[in-house]
C-alpha cells in the first residue's frame, strides 16, 4: 500500500468518525421519541434511546478504529 492511499484512507476515516457518533445518538433519540409517542410513556424511551444510541455510536467508532489497527497490522506484516 502506498503513502497516497494511506492518506486517503486516514482522511476518509476522519470524515466518517464525526458523523458516525452523532447520527447514532440521533437515531436512538428519534426511535425513543417515536416509541414514547406510540406508548404514551414520555420520556422513558427517549432517555433509553439516547443512551443506547450513544452506545451504538461508540460501538461504530470502536469498529472503525479496530479496522485501522487491523490495516496497520496487515501493513506491518506485509512490510517486514
Amino acid at each position: 500500500m502506498n503513502k497516497g492511499s494511506e492518506f486517503r484512507r486516514g482522511l476518509s476515516i476522519a470524515f466518517r468518525l464525526g458523523t458516525e457518533l452523532t447520527v447514532a445518538v440521533m437515531i436512538g433519540a428519534v426511535m425513543g421519541y417515536a416509541l414514547d409517542r406510540y406508548f404514551n410513556s414520555k420520556p422513558w424511551f427517549l432517555a433509553a434511546g439516547v443512551i443506547l444510541g450513544g452506545a451504538a455510536g461508540c460501538l461504530n467508532v470502536y469498529r472503525v478504529s479496530k479496522e485501522i489497527t487491523v490495516e496497520n497490522d496487515k501493513d506491518q506484516n506485509n512490510g517486514v
Binding site: 470524515f15 466518517r16 458523523t19 458516525e20 452523532t22 447520527v23 447514532a24 440521533m26 437515531i27 436512538g28 426511535m31 434511546g49 443506547l52 444510541g53 452506545a55 451504538a56 455510536g57 460501538l59 461504530n60
Partner: peptide
C-alpha cells in the same frame, strides 16, 4: 437483550450517516 437494540440502532445509523454526511458536506 441490550446488544440487540444497540446493534439495530447502529445498523440504521449506517444509511442515515451515509446520507447525512454527503448532504451536510
Amino acid at each position: 437483550p441490550i446488544m440487540i437494540p444497540i446493534e439495530i440502532i447502529s445498523m440504521i445509523a449506517r444509511p442515515v450517516s451515509l446520507s447525512v454526511r454527503l448532504f451536510a458536506n
